[in-house]
Every structure is written in structure tokens, then in C-alpha cells.
């Protein structure tokens, strides 16, 4: 068997190199997607190493309640505080840096939840079809017929306003989009003969859905995941801004914008920099998503 092992390694290494080369080539065709990738990598790095990057981690509530320093309130952007300080004298740069953690966490949670629910629903509805499929997709349609932000608001309002509940509210809104996407993909993959061939071998429905069909619909899910990260962050920030998400003094971007709104336009830096952070994050995920869409050659939406 060692010969086979050898082959395995040589072959797969060769193939891996080859496909990596192609992917790199496709990415190069679309330089903006590389910018997006750079932004995302940067954001993740910042989120992970926030305590070491931020000059005043305690201002963002690192290891305890956010510190206050009223002597220093509303300091204009300067070398000491590049993004200025807020009404409690906290360093906005440090808070924006820590905000990355909340936004990424929110996006990840929401989408993991949405994919966890939406993908199986779409798979079952698409492959099993019939009455079950109809019921599942009609439920999905009901969710889809209400604008997401409105629905998220409707879910968030009765809950205690908090970051966690905001995440739940958004996740509830989000899964139907994945159900719909996967359903559409499954409908076409289902007709491929390898699905029938698998049935002819005696494979169970579960096996066919998850082992045969699912790998063939991963590409659009990946692209949508990337595109959606931006939107999820945006909606999370919107809920924060409306006071339904993370509560002050949590350094969440939307919450910070809402807080700073009261001090516009004199203390313009308070709302502006968290806004710019949202803009960059959303842009980054969108650019990456677009690039992935080209690389994986899929249509989403």
C-alpha cells in the first residue's frame, strides 16, 4: 500500500499546487478582491490581538468595566488619541479596535446559526420535496416577505436589549435566505445523474443529501457567507444604533455612533470613526465575496 500512499501524496500535492495556482490567478484578475481579502485579514488580526494593539484597552472595557477619565473628555484627535475621546474621556481608537471583536463575533454567530438552520432546511425541502418541501419553503417565504431589518426589530423589541439578543434576532431573520439559496441549488443538483446513481447503489436519503449534494452547493454558500458578513455587521450596528443591540458603554460600533450622535457636529469624531470602521468592514467582506464569486464561478441571489 505504500505505493498508493506515495501516489496519494505526489498526486494530491501536485493537484493542490495546481488548484492554488488557479485560484491565485483568478484572484489576481480581480485586484479589488485582494483588497477585500487584505481588509478581512487585517480585521481578524485586529480582533484577535486587540488588547495588544489598542493603547488603552481598559477604555474599551478590557478586563473590567470601561474606564472613565472625565478630565480628558472630548479630546480632539491627536497623537495621544488619534480618533479623539468620548464623553467619558475614553480613547475612541481603542474602543473601535475592540468593536471589531463584537462585530465579527456577531457576524459569525448570526451566519453560523443561519447556515446551521437554513442549509438543512433547504436541503430537505429541495431533495425530499413533496409536502414536506412545500411546508418548509412556505415558512421560509413568510420570513422572506418581511424586510430583514424590520423583522429583526420585531424580534429584538420584545427581548431585553443586549448584544446577545440582537444576535438572536438577526439570526432568526437570516436563515431563510440560506434555505432559499440552498433550495434553488439543490433543485438543480438533484437532477444530476450522480444523485440517481447514488440512489441506485442503495444510499440513504441522508447520505445523498449530505454526502452527494451538499458538497456541490458549498460554493454558493461560501460566497453568500462572505457577502453576508458585511450585511450582518451592518444590521447588528443598526440595532445597536437604535438601542436594541449592545448597550453603552459596550464599544460596539453602532452603539458608539448612536452615543456620538448627540454630540454632532461639534464632536464629529465620536460618530465618524466607528462609522468608518463599519464602512471598511462591510466593504471588505463585499469585495472578498465578489472575488470569491468569480473564483468559484457561482451565482448568488
Amino acid at each position: 500500500m505504500s505505493a498508493i500512499e506515495n501516489w496519494y501524496h505526489s498526486e494530491s500535492m501536485e493537484n493542490r499546487k495546481e488548484s492554488a495556482r488557479r485560484i491565485a490567478y483568478r484572484f489576481r484578475q480581480n485586484p479589488l478582491s485582494l483588497v477585500g481579502l487584505g481588509i478581512i485579514v487585517g480585521l481578524v488580526f485586529i480582533a484577535i490581538f486587540a488588547p495588544y494593539i489598542a493603547r488603552h484597552p481598559q477604555d474599551a472595557g478590557y478586563m473590567g468595566e470601561p474606564a472613565v477619565d472625565f478630565a480628558n473628555r472630548f479630546a480632539e484627535p491627536s497623537l495621544a488619541h488619534p480618533f479623539g475621546t468620548d464623553q467619558a474621556g475614553r480613547d475612541i481608537l481603542s474602543r473601535v479596535i475592540f468593536g471589531t471583536r463584537y462585530s465579527l463575533a456577531l457576524g459569525l454567530f448570526v451566519l453560523t446559526f443561519a447556515i446551521g438552520i437554513g442549509v438543512p432546511v433547504g436541503l430537505v425541502a429541495g431533495y425530499v420535496g413533496g409536502f414536506t418541501g412545500q411546508v418548509l419553503m412556505r415558512i421560509t417565504d413568510i420570513f422572506l416577505s418581511v424586510p430583514p431589518l424590520v423583522l429583526a426589530l420585531a424580534v429584538a423589541v420584545p427581548l431585553q436589549p443586549s448584544l446577545r439578543n440582537a444576535m438572536i434576532a438577526i439570526a432568526v431573520v437570516w436563515w431563510p435566505w440560506y434555505a432559499r439559496l440552498v433550495y434553488g441549488e439543490v433543485i438543480s443538483v438533484r437532477e444530476e445523474q450522480f444523485v440517481e446513481a447514488s440512489r441506485g447503489i442503495g444510499a440513504s436519503r441522508i447520505r445523498i443529501m449530505f454526502r452527494e449534494i451538499l458538497p456541490n452547493v458549498l460554493a454558493p454558500i461560501t460566497v453568500k457567507f462572505s457577502l453576508d458578513m458585511g450585511y450582518a455587521i451592518l444590521i447588528g450596528a443598526s440595532l445597536g444604533f437604535l438601542g436594541l443591540g449592545a448597550q453603552p458603554p459596550t464599544p460596539e460600533w453602532g452603539t458608539m455612533i448612536a452615543e456620538g450622535r448627540a454630540y454632532l457636529p461639534a464632536q464629529w469624531w465620536y460618530s465618524t470613526f466607528p462609522g468608518v470602521a463599519i464602512f471598511i468592514a462591510v466593504l471588505g467582506f463585499n469585495l472578498l465575496g465578489d472575488g470569491l464569486r468569480d473564483v468559484l464561478d457561482v451565482e448568488v441571489d
Binding site: 488548484s19 483568478r26 468569480d294
Partner: peptide, 12 residues
């Protein structure tokens, strides 16, 4: 044989 269309697009 290498399927060039495996990663679509380059010669799309």
C-alpha cells in the same frame, strides 16, 4: 489530462 475548465473562467 488536465481539465482546464475545472477552475472556470480563466479562459471563460
Amino acid at each position: 489530462a488536465q481539465d482546464r475548465s475545472s477552475v472556470k473562467g480563466e479562459s471563460a
